[in-house]
């Protein structure tokens, strides 16, 4: 049973950690759980990202996300990256909510093309946008890089691909690259910054980075203070203090 700790997903996470610039971690000390060794540490703090096994995404998708999420919000001298804050867990869990099926969007046809000012006019719910997008970007990479998947490219190549998606220059078979990118980036940001109860932002790491007091929601005594930074760390929905 102890093999559980060596599930493929866990290996992927650990593998993804290799991309993290460990040297930078040592110099700043901003973030914990940075190196592969720490991530694998059984005594790591509660909510360590490697405890999660994806239920929505398959292995190919998970591999893609491990790489892409790390490019979008990398670990660096400014603060924690999306991977160590559990954004992958957020994504996998969020894709299983009614929201990701498009339950608050108007999803009736006919579906026609319209100028960008009119917003999304497609048939896919959020989770299908992500899923179809991953498959297509991987397909594009395979065709351009001798069969390699996105995750198998080097960091620079991955960034170029993502830029191509963001600017809409990259043409995919089944979906607008820009649409996919926008939705993926939104979701990664949501996972990075939303309350830890949703799976990401472990230890309120993203809130600490920007100085957000989280769910404190009571500032009357600080409204007129001008000369010093807000002094108290964040609190989350579960009442944990950061």
């Amino acid at each position: 049973m102890s093999d559980d700790t060596q599930s493929p997903s866990r290996r992927n996470i650990i593998k993804s950690m290799v991309f993290i610039p460990i040297g930078a971690a040592a110099t700043t000390g901003v973030v914990r759980a940075l190196s592969p060794a720490t991530a694998a540490d059984a005594n790591a703090p509660e909510g360590k990202p490697d405890a999660y096994t994806p239920a929505f995404f398959n292995q190919v998708e998970w591999k893609f996300l491990n790489a892409a999420v790390d490019r979008l919000i990398p670990y660096d001298e400014h603060g924690p990256g999306a991977i160590e804050l559990g954004v992958l867990e957020f994504l996998d869990r969020h894709m299983q909510t009614p929201y990701a099926t498009g339950d608050i969007w108007y999803m009736q046809g006919p579906f026609v093309k319209a100028a960008p000012e009119f917003g999304y006019q497609g048939k896919l719910g959020l989770r299908d946008i992500i899923r179809v997008g991953i498959k297509n970007v991987d397909g594009y990479c395979a065709s351009q890089f001798g069969g390699k998947a996105f995750a198998d490219l080097d960091r620079k190549q991955q960034e170029e691909i993502l830029k191509g998606c963001e600017g809409g220059k990259l043409k995919l078979e089944d979906i607008s690259a820009k649409l996919f990118f926008t939705n993926l980036l939104n979701e990664v940001r949501n996972g990075y910054f939303a309350d830890p109860k949703h799976g990401g932002n472990k230890g309120m790491g993203a809130w600490k980075m920007i100085g957000y007091p989280g769910m404190r929601a009571d500032y009357l005594d600080w409204v007129e203070v001008r000369d010093k930074p807000y002094p108290i760390g964040p609190v989350d929905l579960a009442g944990r203090r950061g």
Partner: peptide, 27 residues
Amino acid sequence: PVRGIATAPGVPNWGSGWKKGVKEAFR
């Protein structure tokens, strides 16, 4: 931060540059 953090002109939408931008802008 989930509602969005406006960043200064020239700040990218992702990557290290974005992190620096949101950190500088938020408070």
